[in-house]
Write a protein that binds this DNA or RNA. Structure first.
Lengths: 225, 225
DNA sequence: GAACATACATACCGAAGGTATGTGACTGTC
DNA sequence: GACAGTCACATACCTTCGGTATGTATGTTC
């Protein structure tokens, strides 16, 4: 327990630019364990990257700007991430995780397996109306990380959809069929719907119309029983 | 008809790098009218850009490489296009035009308005299986030119879908509803399906399954009459 | 406490998008 | 049919940005 105070709150000798100290943590920094420091830096970088990627888009957002906002230098960035694509990939994975949590919560609230898929879809649609979410998950992700990586970077809503549909089929809530095609149609349809709704003259009304149409579609596919 | 020969086939004084002479045209160049020269240069640039954008993606493809392939310098490129985005936008617009022609042809072959939409969708799906088409229209376009520009850059398949659905509604082939929501679901569903099919273990089988599922969906929405 | 590993900062490089400017070919005009 | 003006480029250059190599203070291990 010797002398723990190290004076300046900056992480190292030179001048730590800014912003990092504004995080929730208490004042001192040098006494923490490496893992905590590392995690905090990654957190700062991801937060800064998310903000800039969302605001300016993947190509327009520069790593220098990300580092400045995170209060770190490029040395730190490249210590934790292999490059710009990987940084974006990490941001994307987080975003999908957040979306998936929301969708899963809505899904689990329903007992009927087909209705549960509907509610999950509804939750995904509503969550995807946020322009920042759209920019990251719908616009830039395909071009930046590719289609395969989008599905392999941890949890993703497409797999959620697939599993929901598969369960609805197993339970007999919809007619037997391979689950993949309907997954593509539903997931792609919801994604495109989100983009259209967000840009509609009256997004509120557009959302209601979309949900009504989606309801018709779900009813049409449900087995009468 | 004075002396028309100008010696070298190169367009101007200095050394025209390459490739441009390989186009279909005959040998001399200087005698043509400006408009023809200009059109030919634009054509070369678009062809080179399409090839590189399709092969390497929007960000990875460099304008220097495009110019080299087109046998032109950046001066020519920036004389005809405002920048990289606009060049890509022009390539994208052409691609959409090509797709739209194919889709329209399939659409017009059917009399029943709802079946015509199905055949148009089928044509769009099959045409979108080409990796080069996918890379340009599905992966890079949203991030590079944005959603609004994708719909304002000339003909596009989404509007075709919208009009087909609107006609099917007017003719009573499907139940009355606002056409926009179903358009988003169908167009987005087909786009996502194309990406999934192209990456499936057995694309042939995946395509058949997708079309079968699409058929079920179309039948479910059709009015019995 | 000495050797080692971690977590950065600093400085630099090359590539690529974009721009400013020059020049020869073309075109309308008198 | 010269001549002025415009068009269609080429050349050279600037700036930004992604990426890398290296130095160094901090933390960890034995």
């Amino acid at each position: 327990m010797a002398a723990a105070r190290t004076g300046s709150g900056s992480r190292q000798g030179a001048a730590g630019p800014a912003a990092a100290a504004a995080r929730g943590g208490v004042a001192p920094v040098a006494g923490r364990r490496q893992r905590e420091r590392s995690d905090a830096t990654v957190e700062d970088l991801l937060a800064a990257a998310r903000a800039l990627f969302a605001a300016e888009g993947y190509t327009a957002a520069s790593l220098d700007a990300v580092c400045e906002r995170a209060g770190v230098t490029k040395g730190a960035l490249y210590h934790h991430f292999a490059g710009k694509r990987q940084l974006f990939g990490a941001v994307y994975a987080r975003e999908q995780q957040r979306l998936a949590d929301t969708v899963t919560a809505a899904y689990l609230r329903e007992d009927d397996p087909w209705e549960a898929v509907f509610q999950g879809g509804r939750a995904y649609l509503e969550a995807s109306l946020d322009p920042e979410v759209q920019r990251i998950t719908l616009f830039d992700a395909p071009g930046a990380v590719g289609w395969e990586a989008m599905r392999e970077l941890g949890v993703n809503c497409r797999d959620l959809t697939l599993r929901g549909i598969a369960r609805a089929i197993r339970r007999g809530a919809i007619a037997p069929r391979p689950a993949e095609p309907l997954t593509s149609i539903l997931y792609g349809g919801l994604s495109e719907s989100a983009m259209a709704i967000a840009r509609a003259d009256d997004p509120r009304e557009a959302l209601q119309e979309a949900l009504a149409d989606l309801r018709v579609l779900f009813d049409a596919l449900a087995t009468g029983a």
